[in-house]
Design a protein around this nucleic acid. Sequence first.
DNA 1: ATGTGTTCCTGTCCGC
DNA 2: TGCGGACAGGAACACA
Length: 283
Amino acid sequence: MPELPEVETVRRGLLPVLEGKTILKAEVRRPDLRWPFPENMAERLTGMRVLRLRRRSKYILADLSSQETLIIHLGMSGRMLIDGTATADFHSNPVLPDKHDHVILHTDAPARVTFNDARRFGAMDLAPTEQVEAHWLLGKLGPEPLGNAFNENYLVARFKGRNTPVKSALLDQRIVAGLGNIYVCEVLHRTGISPKRKAGKIGVDRVQSLVPAIRDVLNEAISSGGSSLRDYRQADGELGYFQHNFTVYDREGQGCTRAGCDGEIARVVQSGRSSFYCPVCQR
DNA sequence: ATGTGTTCCTGTCCGC
DNA sequence: TGCGGACAGGAACACA
């Protein structure tokens, strides 16, 4: 589920139960996810106040009162579940954890925040807040697509001379940090660029058109995710469930939605990932 | 340096 | 109903 808009949606959903709150207890129910958890993670979280809950690319960063920052990545299947918001539940009605509930934070919101990740491609680490940007997971990330450093001149320069398909280039987190398979497909459809076109061989004006398209798609997705935040206030406690009407993603065989285009959405595999596109209007 | 394929893990869905 | 295979929103890593 998590590309940038989903991670941002999750972050916003977590704000009321984490930011400014204290972690009363941390349950670490296995030693690792994609990588081993840091030494004594439970102890280093317990008693800490979350000063600020930030996002960098697809990472959620929780700055702690201990001057350490908790780095969270959701991988492919990671979810943050919130429950126990009713005081009575929190204190007296613990729910039996699911087998994929790996880390549980009890806060004084009061709330129980559960990191659930079936495939375990997610990650958690702790780093000094002052140096967190240089953490090995974050240090090589490109600019935020919604920030000022990501602009037309930048993208033109980064695409110049690249022989890789534009699909791969936009998935490269060193070029721009936060896009994933869905939104790259959507952006390319919106700009009429074939995912197979080499990044270095796209006209300057078309490369430039990618920048506002990326911003628009991400902002629209965040807006939709924001509205879906209401879901977790309901009984199941689910957070960040993202609904969106895709124009190409997962629409193989269906008609192209572009006005006046009668193409049929195709699927091709590029470096192991599915690309969905319209062979008629994407060139 | 750059480009591509493999790998980690579990769950779900689809055809036989 | 079971079984095998394909596939899944990520990205580090090994290798040409």
